[in-house]
């Protein structure tokens, strides 16, 4: 039922992409976003798309599950496209209906916006599909460490994030169980008007909240029993270490970003 929520689900694997340092992947992700917004024309987006496709192929994550992850987003994508199509300024008017006119520039804008969103989302998927949540938060914590000096509670944030990530599958599973149990008592979530459907959610939400609070309580006690006292003086079992492949990846990422930036901003390609 809920198992088709693939959003951000880690796909265990042994590919080169999987084995990159999480910091590398996080920073490359940021670089990719920057490049996406520097790009302007067909050439730069073609380069960006090819780059991403190469990464997807290398990671051996099945494309079908990537596409399935895009499914919940198609409404957002379509709305963005339509808005861009209708409300872009431009010279070459294709046709006019009432006071709304569709221009050639509008079509381009809409197309590029859609490509941008899709590439952005797919790139985010590649990050979370190939990096286990633990490594991801480890990497984030290390990257943000400099900000500790200005009072950002980096360790606490990372801990919160890893707990949240850790509990997503648990809560999904729990929700699944509760839905099944209420269905077994004849609960009907699929018929009736919006009000009835919203009311039908109560038998799911109440037990879910209760169990979430219970789990939070238990976890807090368990952490205290193991003398958890925050990040200070804490050492790690797994140290993050850059390898040669990470440096290579950084170079590729920077070259890509600069190249797309020049192509897009200087030549408008």
């Amino acid at each position: 039922m809920l198992s088709n929520i693939t959003l951000g689900q880690y796909f265990p694997g042994e590919s080169l992409i999987h084995r990159l340092d999480p910091r590398t992947k996080l920073l490359l992700f940021v670089l990719y976003i920057v490049a996406l917004f520097l790009g302007k024309g067909l050439v730069s987006y073609a380069i960006m798309a090819i780059f991403l496709i190469v990464i997807i192929v290398m990671s051996k994550v099945p494309p079908s599950s990537l596409l399935r992850g895009l499914k919940p987003l198609w409404i957002v994508i379509i709305i963005t496209g339509v808005l861009n199509l209708l409300f872009s300024q431009g010279q070459t008017v294709l046709f006019t209906w009432r006071r709304i006119s569709v221009t050639l520039e509008g079509c381009y804008n809409a197309g590029f916006m859609i490509v941008r969103i899709i590439l952005l989302v797919l790139c985010a998927f590649m990050l979370t599909y190939t990096t286990s949540p633990i490594l991801l938060t480890d990497g984030l914590e290390r990257l943000l460490r400099p900000f500790q000096k200005i009072g950002l509670p980096v360790h606490e944030l990372a801990m919160m994030m890893s707990i949240a990530l850790r509990f997503i599958p648990t809560l999904v599973e729990e929700t699944d169980k509760i839905i099944s149990a209420q269905k077994a008592r004849g609960a009907d979530f699929e018929s009736g008007n919006i009000l009835r459907r919203a009311k039908a959610l109560i038998p799911i939400l109440v037990p879910l909240f209760i169990s979430a609070f219970r789990r939070a309580d238990e976890l807090a006690i368990a952490m205290e029993c193991r003398c958890y006292h925050g990040g200070e003086g804490r050492t790690r079992l797994h140290q993050l270490k850059y390898a040669r492949k990470d440096y290579v990846a950084y170079v590729i990422g920077i070259v890509l970003c600069v190249a797309v930036g020049i192509l897009g901003r200087r030549f408008g390609l």
Binding site: K177, I178, S180, A181, Q182, K183, A184, R185, G186, D188, I202, P203, V206, P207, I210, S211
Partner: peptide, 19 residues
């Protein structure tokens, strides 16, 4: 839907689904 009433299923730890 009918069957759910003819075949009643009590889940493991059913107390967690009281609401």
């Amino acid at each position: 839907h009918q069957l759910r009433f003819q075949v009643g299923l009590v889940f493991q730890y059913p107390e967690y689904q009281l609401f």
